[in-house]
Design a protein around this nucleic acid. Structure first.
Lengths: 195, 195
DNA sequence: ACCTGGGCTTGACCTGGGTTAAGGCGGAGG
DNA sequence: CCTCCGCCTTAACCCAGGTCAAGCCCAGGT
């Protein structure tokens, strides 16, 4: 077992026999990425995903008119991949970029489907992952519906303290749905009020 | 089989043997709701869900400070229930209200778990449902990130033509994340531009 | 026919965030 | 050491949408 820690983490989502984990490791490949390197680019087939072993990634959606917005940040222990496109069998519309020199464990979805056919535990895990993702997106929806940009900012840092100092300001802004200018203003406003 | 149409619809998501469907119908109960009646209210246990046979529902989240925002509308063939709260085993934070005299088919989650243990097809269906929900929420996230209120409005009617005339304006506004005043203005602006 | 109330519209005014453009600042490379 | 570049901040101006309040329209009830 090359990654016992990862195994423990995944096993908290759904029961996962160690021997199945060994099979999974057999089909996985490690990959290193430099800062700014892309794990996936728009147009790529959404036929693989990875677990972050080290580093931070941003999922960027480039809109038709060129606007960039950020769907999520992902750090150690989390999954990266164009999940929605994978489910819909569409090419990726997302760029996934390393914000630091990073290290990931890559799976081909095809190999993973093999695993699923071998043992139900993988199916159950996939379900948990889908449910987890759903809960997170719904929380985000809620934030857009009833919180101001400033409130979203506060909540962001409450929920992602481990990202402090690892992601540029402008990306936080693109995640919150505002410009970096607006974010800067919000922060100076708060500084003033705080003193 | 009391609801063959419903069966066909669900079976498109995942293979579903008819005899399993019969078992499901055995534990389901029909329920009728008057206009404005609540299928679920905030604070209720999130231990049941339903399929809409007839009518339209709105999922309302009442925020701590009293603001109302709308998470989704659901019409014939769709699921209603406090899904996120069910997954997290939390009491419902959502009110689900009939906008018309309606008719639904109710399942207790407990009974459904029984079905899951009897046959994997239900587990697979649950996974598909989770994935489906995720894709929808991600699409909505995208809309908040890169579309103006007016663009969201246009898209809303493109994607939900069957709701035309069935839901009050103010609810559309609450779904888009704006006030009914703003929505009214947007509409008159478009009327002017169109002539 | 008359009230009443709910839902939509309109207007006046305010505020938050977008846009553009001009600095400031700190770190990497010459 | 200086310069350049990437990143952040600040300022000026504009516009979308929020808020409050007054009206309008119409369906239902009397």
């Amino acid at each position: 077992m090359r990654f016992p820690k990862l195994f423990e983490r995944l096993a908290t989502l759904a029961p996962l026999p160690p021997e199945e984990w060994v099979k999974a490791e057999a089909v996985a490949k490690e990959q290193s990425l430099a800062k700014r390197e892309l794990f996936m680019r728009p147009g790529d087939a959404a036929d693989r995903f990875a677990v972050v072993l080290q580093g931070v990634f941003r999922g960027v959606r480039v809109s038709p008119r060129g606007g960039e917005s950020i769907k999520a940040f992902r750090a150690e222990g989390e999954l990266i991949g164009a999940y929605a496109e994978m489910l819909q069998r569409l090419p990726s519309m997302t760029a996934i970029e390393a914000l630091e020199p990073s290290h990931v464990l890559v799976f081909q979805t095809q190999d993973f489907q093999q695993l699923e056919q071998g043992h139900v535990c993988w199916e159950r895990l996939a379900r948990r992952v889908a449910e987890q993702h759903f809960v997170l997106k719904e929380r985000r929806e809620q934030e857009f519906l009833e919180l101001s940009a400033e409130e979203r900012l506060v909540k962001f840092w409450e929920e992602h303290p481990h990202l402090k100092g690892r992601i540029p300001q402008r990306d936080v802004a693109a995640y919150l749905g505002i410009t970096e200018v607006a974010l800067s203003r919000i922060m100076s406003r708060r500084r003033k009020r705080a003193e």
